[in-house]
Amino acid sequence: MPSVLLTESLAVELGAREPWPVDVKLFQPYDVEQILLPDNANCLAVQAYLKMCGLHFQIENRSNAEFMSPSGRVPFIKCGAFVVSELDPIIAFVGTKGVSLTNDLDNTQKADMRAYMSLINTVLVNAELYVTWCDPTTLNEVTKPRYGSVFPWPLNHIQCWQKRTQVLKKLSILGWAQKSLDEVYSEIESCCNALSQRLEDQKYFFGDRPTELDGLVFGHLFTILTTPLPNNRFAGIVRGYSNLIELCKTVERMYFDRSVPEPST
């Protein structure tokens, strides 16, 4: 769609002229009764990223956030007249305001960071989608009631079915739909292993300052650890990596602890 690209670049061009406004809102589904594991992970990653940048925003819960989003995926931010969805475009958008977490990194480190981010996006995101929409127990006990909770009968069933069809289509194109649950868990295992080895004993992935990779890892791992699922093996695998758990704790303490005042810019 060329028009999307055009407006995207236009948004970036125009957005650069204004500073970060005070009334920025982040839209996401209701996190208590509605949001699903993959969406929650993405929302938390964006929240962590914006907080790491020291940018102020308000969270707005909307039951139709997914449909309001221009890309069809949550979360998205409304910044003045601009609506930007998902982490990568938001990072680019924030970059136009002159805010970046990666200024101190050299090119090799930046490429390294990109590689790990795409590892998460290809492995963890798909694994979350798989567990949420393909595992029958999770699908029936968690996904369907939660996803359908905002729709009246019989729309809840129709929407669930429609969404599941979409996700399955995506997963089968990526070759994930045919995998067994054990294969998926071993994929998660190797992904966590890679992340853990890269982190070693550092505070963050690249030294003492957080980057978007830390935000993304926090978003996914924290959600996996804290979301109650009928099958807890997912969280169990992550718990095996103590340095990753430590990272989650650090990010939570630094940026999400309500008792500590928010870091100022």
């Binding site: 028009s3 407006t7 995207e8 139709n64 997914e66 449909f67 009246p152 729309l155």
Partner: peptide, 16 residues
Amino acid sequence: TRSAAFEVREQSGPTL
């Protein structure tokens, strides 16, 4: 379009 008013955007989604 992407440039649709936010008031319109807020209405998107399915209703029965």
